[in-house]
C-alpha cells in the first residue's frame, strides 16, 4: 500500500514538473495559428533581427572555437601553476549574471572604460556596434564550449597520444590526426550549447551594444522591443528561437550518442546546464 502511494506521488511530481516546463513552450505555439505565425515572421524587424543574430553568433562561435580550443587543450593536458584558477576563470561567465557581464564589458571596453583610450587611439569604438554584440556573445557563451572542450581533451587516452609520438609523429600532427578526431564529438556538443546560449544572449548585449534595428538588435532584443508594440510578433520570434533551441538540443543528443558509441568513455562528464 505504501509502495503504491510512493509511486503515485513520484508520478504526480514528475507530471507536474513536465507540464510546468512544457506549458510556456506550448503557449507560444498555440497563441496564434501557424499561418499567422509565419506571416508575422515576414516583417522587417524580424528579418533584420534574424540576420543580426545569425551573423553575430557565427562570428562569435568562430572566435570561441579559434581561441577556446587551444585554451582548453592547454588546460586539459598541461599542469601549470594557477591551472585551477584558469579553470575557474573560463567558467566564471557561466554563473555571472548577464547584466554584470554587460557592466563589466562597458567598464573594460567602453569609451570611458579601462581600455577605452587605447582602443580609441586605434580608431576603435566598440559600444553600439555589431562588434560589441559579438564581444558580448563571445563573453557569455565561451565557457560552455571551453568547459566541454576541456572534458573532451581530458577524455582522450594518453596512451594513444604517446603511441603516436613514439611512432615519430610530430606533436602538431598528433594533435590533428589523433587528439582532435577523438575529441570531436565533445567539441561539437560544446559548440552546440555555446551557440544556443549565444543566440539567447540579452542582458550583456543590451547594456554593451544597445539596440538598433538591423545593426545591434538581435532576436532576443527584438522580442523585448516588440513585446509592448506587437505581442504577436514577439511571440512569433519566441517560437522561432524555441525551434532553433530544439534543433540544437536534438543534435546535441545525437552528438553525445555518437561519441559514446565511437569511444569507450562515458559521456556524462559534459555539463549540460545553460544558466544565464
Amino acid at each position: 500500500m505504501r509502495r503504491v502511494g510512493l509511486v503515485l506521488l513520484l508520478g504526480l511530481a514528475t507530471a507536474v514538473s513536465l507540464a510546468f516546463l512544457l506549458l510556456p513552450i506550448v503557449a507560444l505555439f498555440v497563441h496564434t495559428t501557424p499561418g499567422r505565425l509565419i506571416s508575422q515572421l515576414s516583417s522587417d524587424v524580424v528579418k533584420d533581427a534574424f540576420v543580426v543574430s545569425l551573423k553575430t553568433s557565427l562570428i562569435a562561435q568562430l572566435l570561441i572555437v579559434g581561441f577556446g580550443t587551444p585554451t582548453a587543450f592547454v588546460i586539459a593536458t598541461r599542469r601549470f601553476p594557477g591551472r585551477s584558477l584558469a579553470v575557474t576563470l573560463v567558467e566564471l561567465p557561466l554563473v555571472l549574471p548577464p547584466a554584470v557581464a554587460g557592466i563589466g564589458l562597458l567598464a573594460a571596453f567602453g569609451r570611458m572604460g579601462l581600455l577605452g583610450s587605447e582602443l580609441s587611439a586605434l580608431g576603435i569604438s566598440l559600444p553600439f556596434t555589431q562588434s560589441a554584440v559579438v564581444v558580448a556573445v563571445t563573453f557569455v557563451a565561451s565557457p560552455l564550449y571551453v568547459r566541454a572542450a576541456i572534458a573532451a581533451f581530458e577524455g582522450v587516452d594518453p596512451d594513444l597520444v604517446a603511441a603516436s609520438r613514439t611512432l615519430g609523429v610530430s606533436p602538431t600532427r598528433t594533435f590533428f590526426r589523433v587528439v582532435l578526431p577523438l575529441a570531436r564529438a565533445g567539441l561539437a556538443a560544446g559548440l552546440a550549447l555555446s551557440f544556443a546560449r549565444g543566440l539567447g544572449e540579452f542582458g550583456a548585449t543590451i547594456m554593451f551594444a544597445g539596440s538598433l534595428q538591423a545593426v545591434t538588435q538581435t532576436l532576443p532584443l527584438a522580442i523585448y522591443s516588440q513585446f509592448d508594440l506587437d505581442f504577436d510578433t514577439a511571440v512569433a520570434m519566441g517560437a522561432v528561437l524555441v525551434l532553433v533551441s530544439i534543433v540544437l538540443l536534438v543534435s546535441l543528443r545525437l552528438l553525445l550518442s555518437w561519441q559514446s558509441s565511437s569511444s569507450t568513455r562515458s559521456s556524462s562528464r559534459f555539463g549540460l546546464s545553460t544558466s544565464g
Binding site: 567602453g110 559600444p127 538598433l212
Partner: peptide, 21 residues
Amino acid sequence: NVVSRETDVREVLAKVALGEA
C-alpha cells in the same frame, strides 16, 4: 546618427552619463 534605441528614458540618460554616447 542614432546608434541605439533604448527601452526607457533612464537607459538613454545612463548611456550618455557613462560617456558612451
